[in-house]
Design a protein around this nucleic acid. Structure first.
Lengths: 185, 185
DNA sequence: AAGTTTGTTCAGTAAAAACTGTACAAAGTT
DNA sequence: AACTTTGTACAGTTTTTACTGAACAAACTT
């Protein structure tokens, strides 16, 4: 290999690294660690699907870390496992529909939180209703009623959020904001 | 105070705690620590705006933690400072427009990440263009061109995301998904 | 001006999370 | 059946993050 090519290959690495580092910095929005973010970037630029061993070598990190990193990326639907005839090792490539990746993450995370919060609201409301019914302490009663109002507000908010999430779930969002946006003029 | 009232007050605390604990569990979606989430819940149920000292006492944590916790909530627009005549201490209450809170968090976090990523894409593209122009290594050239294609795709995706974010920024989202949703039937 | 009250900075500590190497189980190869 | 290869569980270590108390600065009170 000529030293010239070597230098050019380094420049390519450098360019890729500029983008990978930025991904690593912002990936926490997907609840993914920076190093799993670098892993994502590495697989993103790879021409072929990668094995855990290749990732390990490329990243200079343990295979164990690759395994856990890839799993978190898989769970976020940002990476997928692919099969290739004659290859025993697991192969991974990035999910190539980024719109889908984003939607998946957005939906899963917010819907999950929303459901749990709504359950909590229902339970709390019930506890407060019971308390109001049985208490003889007027102050407590008043406080509980005040709390109930706040919870009803919260409930409405979560209903709204559920509807927003549904935009992404149904794909309706792509009617509102079309996918094939060309570069803004 | 009668022992009966004491027990009822405990029950109120218990009910509130059910909701507060759930918030604490899911607040990481806003990049906020669980304990700052509990703090939010505490202020949420308080009838009056609270001081740092009151929070400290209520939460059984240091005032320093209250200070940093409140700051993170302030930055997320989830809490606001209020003024009351004759009171020297800083008073805080929860931002009572949750739709606004959500939008703020959503907008700030995603727009910021999107801008940084788009900057990185521009820079990386430039680096790759330069490399393609000057390299004599055909393999490197091919790889760089391949990378460029991927970056163009990413660019389109971020344009789309920018438009989605704009729905929330402009408030257009409330035309699409109306706020005053009554409880789903 | 001296004395308080109040919030924050900072250094040290405690708790949590990320990473590694070893050991092992499952599946493939001989 | 013995041997390899491959991915993951687990225990220990390192790194990062959260929390605290002491010291301090700014603003208010006397």
């Amino acid at each position: 290999m000529r030293s010239e090519s070597k230098k050019d290959m380094d420049k390519l690495e450098e360019a890729r690294n500029r983008f990978i580092s930025e991904i690593a910095k912002n990936i926490h929005l997907y609840n993914i660690t920076p190093s799993a973010g670098r892993l994502y970037g590495t697989v993103f630029f790879s021409k072929e699907p990668m094995t855990l061993d290749e990732m390990s070598k490329e990243m200079g990190m343990s295979k164990t870390s690759m395994s856990t990193g890839i799993r978190s990326l898989l769970e976020a639907n940002m990476v997928e496992r692919v099969w290739e005839r004659g290859i025993r090792k697991d192969l991974y490539k990035v999910e190539d529909d980024w719109y889908k990746s984003f939607s998946n993450v957005f939906i899963n995370r917010w819907r999950n939180a929303t459901e749990l919060n709504m359950d909590a609201i229902q339970e709390t409301k019930e506890m407060l209703h019971n308390l109001i019914e049985q208490t003889e302490d007027e102050d407590v009663k008043e406080l509980a009623e005040h709390d109930l109002e706040k919870l009803v507000y919260a409930e409405n908010y979560y209903n709204w959020l559920t509807d927003v999430i549904a935009l992404f779930e149904t794909g309706e969002i792509f009617d509102i904001v079309p996918k094939n946006t060309e570069k803004h003029e």
